[in-house]
Structures are given as structure tokens and as C-alpha cells.
Amino acid sequence: MKALVSLGASTLDRIAALGRATAILTGALFAKPTPMKSFPLVLKQIYVVGVQSLLIILVSGLFIGMVMALQAYTVLVSYGAEDSLGPMVALSLLRELGPVVTALLFAGRAGSALTAEIGLMKATEQLSSLEMMAIDPLRRVIAPRFWAGVISMPLLAIIFSTVGILGGHAVGVDWLGVDSGSYWSIMQATVEFNQDVVNGIIKSLVFAFVVTWIAVFKGYDAVPTSEGISKATTQTVVHSSLAILGLDFVLTALMFGTY
């Protein structure tokens, strides 16, 4: 009986949180746009959220591309199919690893920072003081950060995949001796723009939407104490990661499943 009650209570809590999250999202999305004022704010946040995540994305992309080439080569070479290394690396990156790993890194690097920043603004009454100045914090603080995340992540994913393909080239061609011409030409022949590139970008957009939403919501909804903020930050990373992996399965089934 007790278990049932607490199950019910926690379910209600979840639903209430979902309601608050939706309210924040709509408040931010449909905030009265003031392009002259919003644009610089979004740009600044793109710098904070996107540009400052660039290094970790570049390094990770490079290494993942190199590791993939190494792994794939050992398998392919035993079938004499090492010429397919190019498409192998490119497809895995564009369809899967680019969007997914970028989103996971983004959640850890930028999402947690967003949550902590917004939570701290709440704890130090900066959000309250905006409200009292008749400035909607959803428009002034949440919306620019949300849009910056949604814009930055797909771009980061593209950069990730590009660097990964170059890393694969470095290992496969320069080190292991696969023919450079076939690395590129078979890749070009195999990768389809709509099927592979566009779908990857769509995945990335969905992840961007969800991760940034979780990050700004957790910050805005945080209990305004040090403990509350640290909890919210952890939750951002955990919830985002689970959401990314779950959604990835659903999206992959919809996009590439043949049934």
C-alpha cells in the first residue's frame, strides 16, 4: 500500500515537472521576439555554448575517426575489402557517432554549465530581480540559451563527423596504406546526401532540442541552494544522456529500419 502511494506520488511529481518544463519551453519559444535585442544575446550564447565546446568536439572527433579506421581495417582486410574503409568510417560517423557522441559531449560540457549558470542566477535572486524589473527571464535568459543550443549542436555534429573522416583517412590511408583515391571515391559513391547526411542532421537537431531543453529546465527549476544546483547539474547530464540514447534508437528505427 505504502509503495503504491509513493509510486503514485512520484508519478504525479513527474507529470507536474513535465508540465512546468512545457510551460518554460513555450514561454521561451513564444516570447515576444525583439530581434534587435535578442540577436546579440543569442550570438553571445552561441559563443559560450558552441564555440567553447569546439575543442572537445574536434579532439574527440579526430580520435573516434582514427579508432574506427583502425578497428574497421582489421576486420575488412581479412576479407580483402579494405577499400570499403572510407564508406564504413563515413557512414558510422554521419549516421550514428557524429550526432550521438556530439550530443553526449555537449550535454556534459555545455548542458551542465547551462544548468549550473541558470540555477545560480536563481539562487542569487538574479531571475527574481529581472522579473521585478518587468523583464521576462524566459525571454531574456532562457530563450537565447535555448536557441544557441539548438543552433550550435548540429553544427558541432557536422564538424565532429568531418574531423572524424579526416582522422580515419590519417590512420587508414597514411598509416595503414589504403589507397587514398578509393577511400574518397567509394565514400562518395556510397554516402547518399538525403539518406545519410540529412538524417544525421535531423537526429542532431532532435538531440539539440531535447538536451538544451533539459538543461535550461533543470536550471530554472533547481532548488536554489548549492545542493539543489549540484543535483540539478547531475540530473541534466544523466537525463540528457538517457534521452539521447533512447531517442537515437527510435530515430534510427524510423530512418534506417527496413521492415
Partner: peptide, 9 residues
Amino acid sequence: LFQSGALFT
């Protein structure tokens, strides 16, 4: 004027 000041940091 907030008790904590609440300046934008």
C-alpha cells in the same frame, strides 16, 4: 532593492 543585491554577475 533585493536584500542580496542580486546584481547580474
